[in-house]
Design a protein around this nucleic acid. Sequence first.
DNA 1: GTGAAAGCGCTAACAT
DNA 2: ATGTTAGCGCTTTCAC
Lengths: 337, 337
Amino acid sequence: MPTIYDVAKLAEVSPKTVSRVLNGEPAVAEETRARVLAAMKQLDYHPNAIAASLKRQRSNIIGFVVPYGSEFVFQDPNMMEQLRGVHDVVTQAGYDLLLSVPVERKDALSELLRLVRNKNIDGVILYPTAGVERIIKELNQKNFKYVTLERYREDQQTNYVRINAVAGVYQATRYLLEKGHRRIGLINKPASFFNYCCSEDSLINGYASALAEAGMEVDAGLVETGDYTFEGGYQAFMNIREREPGVTAVICASDPMAYGAIRAAEDGGMAVGRDLLVVSGDNLPLTRKLYPMLPALSNPSFEQGRYAGDMLLTLIKEKRDLPGISLDARFVPPKGL
Amino acid sequence: MPTIYDVAKLAEVSPKTVSRVLNGEPAVAEETRARVLAAMKQLDYHPNAIAASLKRQRSNIIGFVVPYGSEFVFQDPNMMEQLRGVHDVVTQAGYDLLLSVPVERKDALSELLRLVRNKNIDGVILYPTAGVERIIKELNQKNFKYVTLERYREDQQTNYVRINAVAGVYQATRYLLEKGHRRIGLINKPASFFNYCCSEDSLINGYASALAEAGMEVDAGLVETGDYTFEGGYQAFMNIREREPGVTAVICASDPMAYGAIRAAEDGGMAVGRDLLVVSGDNLPLTRKLYPMLPALSNPSFEQGRYAGDMLLTLIKEKRDLPGISLDARFVPPKGL
DNA sequence: GTGAAAGCGCTAACAT
DNA sequence: ATGTTAGCGCTTTCAC
């Protein structure tokens, strides 16, 4: 493989001049630049990014570390949407994306440390999980740039992009109340998953406010917690139905859980859309297609990824922290209303 | 950041000895090794992977380039399964995965070239697309290691992992015939997508053989081609139904197309499972959950990814080409039969 | 506008 | 078992 020296020799200039052409630096005569470019072409020269990284002390690679094990991650449509958002924005900025999903869930933190310490990467997008605080501390100490999806602590002020579903759930609940529903189930997200710390954005808050406005109280029998999966949603709805056979609507914190609830309802002889209204939790494209008539909470996961990527790139460029961002989930009423 | 020299000084050994400890080379006295490790710990030393890469002339990074645009890719469950397979196997072998999905579909080939030429990566997994042949030629010339998912040419002999659905479709068709179905639809995969060259593994072959054995011929009115998407499946079934109102079963080449066909059937007033039997195309976990009663073709996409990753690692290690692999899709009869 | 020299942090080759 | 030397391919002073 030809190096910058080979090009320099052929073009009869110094290596530094070749480097200048490579990096589009201005102080090069047009005629010289042309000669250098011709030499590159003739030799089929391509710069070695690793050598440049070593000297520059940065790799132009962004890391994305996702805990929870690959089996879950690659089948979770929201994570894929976040990944897509991050990918698109960093790719277009000329960075590459190093994707790391610990095969075993328990390796998530050490994997993160490995990536960061070996500093192949210029920054990292990560999910807060239990135990991450120690790592964030190390990142801060080393002045290593990161953005978290959701917050790792309730008092985190900077460098996160989160989604707040409370307003969406409030609207969904109001909508259902207005339609005459009185026994409204809620399949909430787990208290300790992404945002394992932050109780304030539990869906229960929006749900409870809307009920309170209608002079109603939360009935514990109507509330369940799922684990974001189909199975979790299935079981949760089964439990709710057993306790509250009169349930006529259910709000789900995620689409897979909504699918589970739908199957549970149908297995129990209910006709979804007639006996039971299901509010899905993410409004994934697939959900819109499978169940076009159902209302939904719309989770801007893709935008979350985009903002996170953007924020990280700015962090890297400007070397300062940025205030965290909250994106509100929206309520999408059913088609034709 | 401390370097290998700092560690060497503190441990009172040479840098080379530190390097030996780092790489687990045998010829180090136990006592020395302990001293070095202690020094590393004291300094919070972590090796710089970029420097090692420059010297070693390899990065321990595998590239995965997926064409078709990120919007499609991250929402396609089969691609995600392949990605997961590749990811798991290379990760466990100590490699990192660089994921590259050109945001614009037309940039796929140049993206591939960029990755390869800058040789940040030790090898690449790629999909054959129109025009890829030129690039494969360059890869061969430079002795750069790659594995293709599906073949880029009918006569490709090495370095691919493909899925052959013909046997599965044959079994599916036989099953349906035995159950008494006579008007069996087929929503085939497009002739030019992954394996844009290879007509031999068109589903039509397995379909036609099974029909022929039963003394029947292929009725062109029952066959459509989709583009792997929900919309494609929807439209395809609509077309089939219009031409052949008596259709009682349909075999789909992918799960999203099966979802589309199901929706089309239901929109047309058919009850899936009673009026129409749908054989889904991939047997994704989600499909098993949403439609547990339907028969399916089972597409081993995850295994395809694993084999591709394995093959690439072997290619890199042994510096030789390997014969291509075909994985047969299976037919999975409906539950309870 | 261009060039010479030094060095990023590591490892391979060749000592001893 | 351990050390010395050189150099991977580039960019960064600092000079002219």
